[in-house]
Design a protein around this nucleic acid. Structure first.
Length: 116
DNA sequence: CGTATGACGAGCC
DNA sequence: AGGCTCGCCATAC
């Protein structure tokens, strides 16, 4: 049963992360650290970024709903996806202020509110 | 094997 | 607000 959470294989960690991200509802966002925690991988926010970068375009995983703890879209210098992410979020009603920041109190995902 | 590098985050100044 | 350090750990070289 309780496997060493910090000792899971990279493969299993990716599956857990993808599962958690897939559970983020439309119009809500979660932070890298939050996703890591929910995936049973505390303090491994960087791994979440890696897991998302490994996704295929047609994976269906809502990678755009993951932002950093400052409420901002994390920089991927040179990649068009950084801008695309903002577009996808605005399309589903997530508001960004002039500086591109999202209010986590308003749009942050609370798993307890949306069980299942 | 040692270093550097990240879609990160918390703490500190 | 902005910068720095350290923790984290898979990958690349």
């Amino acid at each position: 049963m309780s496997p060493r959470q910090a000792g899971v294989s990279a493969d299993e960690a990716f599956r857990r992360i993808h599962r958690v991200v897939s559970a983020i509802p439309e119009g809500r966002v979660a932070t890298y650290g939050q996703v890591a925690l929910l995936a049973g991988l505390p303090r491994r926010a960087r791994l979440v970024g890696r897991a998302l970068a490994a996704l295929d375009d047609d994976s269906g995983v809502p990678w755009h709903r993951v932002i950093n703890a400052q409420g901002r879209i994390s920089s991927r210098d040179g990649s068009p996806y950084e801008h695309f992410q903002r577009l996808l979020l605005e399309e589903e009603g997530v508001e960004l202020d002039e500086s591109g920041r999202i209010d986590l109190d308003r749009f942050g995902w609370d798993p307890d509110e949306t069980p299942g």
